[in-house]
Simulated assay, not measured.
Amino acid sequence: MAIVLGPNRYGKAETRLVRVTRDGDTHGLADLNVSVALSGELSATHLSGDNAGVLPTDTMKNTVYAFAREHGVASPEEFALLLGRHFVQTQPQITHARIGIESFGWERIGPHSFRRAGDFVRTAVVDVSSSGSQVVSGLRDLVVMNTTDSEFHGFPRDRYTTLPETTDRILATSVTASWRHSAGVADVEAVKDALVHAFVTTHSYSLQQTLYAMGKRVITDFPGIAEIRLALPNKHHYLVDLSRFDLENPGEVFMAGDRPYGLIEGTVTRDDAPPALVEWYL
């Protein structure tokens, strides 16, 4: 039996970076969580402990901070591209760099004063190799709810099915979305608004239907987006039985469920989209 080394990578995960841009009395602020992963000809370190090709992960962390000083942070995607190209171009043993960034929002409350803001966390994953680059933008933790215009019925039943059918329910979810760019980089706030608009205006017969409507809206509105992937956990709300207290409950009092929960995932793709450079995930 032959034993071989399979795909592998290594890097520095979750380097916390806060970059202040000082423009006189008015300051700008970028708050990032940066992860670097490199792959290439790294078999020697795995098989024999030869570290000649292993750039220290501490160096990756230092590069993040140095690049923030030298280049600033125009956007998470641009910063990630700078880092990825640097590692591939300066390390001959590295053929692929993946840079993942979480970006946390701050709202200005004065020339140099801020408070945490935003109803979601912005994300970016950039892949750089000798054959090109791929930019995936996204968001997570966008919590939305419709208190009506949601149904769920007509599903198969077996001996273990106890869920009643409904023509009026609360539909709530925490949106995680990632979209692959084929041209340019779409504004994240604008994509978020398109997702929210589709959620609000879709009379839902299933969360799957809502997912497709949200993805279709983004693909329609943004020609530079090749595909979008969504993960929508169903944040269940259960009508509370108040009959024991001689009270009616006409769809007004609910218990918010924690777990388990349904998880709906799907991809909506432009049929003429160029293929992905590498596989990517939410």
Rank of each mutant, 00 (worst) to 15 (best):
V125S: 03
V175E: 04
R115W: 00
A97K: 04
S174Q: 13
P156L: 08
V185N: 06
H96Y: 03
V88D: 13
V136Y: 05
S174P: 06
P56V: 08
V128M: 01
Q89D: 15
T173L: 03
F114Y: 15
T95L: 05
H153F: 14
A97P: 03
F104K: 08
R159K: 10
T90P: 07
V88H: 11
A74K: 11
P56S: 13
A177H: 09
D141P: 03
E107A: 15
G84S: 09
D193G: 03
T166M: 02
E102Y: 02
D127H: 14
K192P: 01
I101V: 13
F79Q: 07
I99C: 04
R157M: 05
R85Y: 00
R169S: 07
L163Q: 11
L142D: 09
L139G: 10
T147V: 10
R108W: 02
S130T: 07
F120M: 01
V128I: 10
E77G: 02
M145F: 00
T63M: 10
E151W: 08
I99W: 05
Q134N: 11
D127I: 01
G132M: 11
P156Q: 05
I170K: 07
G100K: 09
S131Q: 12
P76F: 00
A177G: 12
V135W: 06
E70M: 07
F79L: 09
E102H: 11
V73Q: 06
G110I: 07
V144P: 08
A124C: 15
G100H: 11
A117C: 05
S178K: 06
G100N: 12
V144M: 06
E78S: 10
A194V: 00
N62Y: 04
I99T: 12
S113Q: 15
V144D: 07
L142M: 12
T161L: 10
R98Y: 01
F87N: 09
D158P: 07
I170W: 02
S130G: 14
S129N: 12
I170Y: 02
V126C: 06
I109W: 08
T173Q: 05
E107C: 05
D158E: 08
D58L: 03
V125D: 06
E165V: 06
S130Q: 09
V64N: 11
S174R: 14
I101Y: 00
R157T: 14
A177I: 14
H96I: 03
G184R: 04
F67P: 13
V185E: 06
M145T: 13
A183P: 00
V191L: 00
A194H: 04
G110W: 05
G118E: 01
H181N: 06
S178H: 13
I94W: 12
N146I: 15
I101G: 02
S130L: 07
R115L: 11
A66E: 10
T167W: 02
T123G: 00
S174D: 15
V128Q: 04
F79E: 07
Q134W: 07
T167V: 10
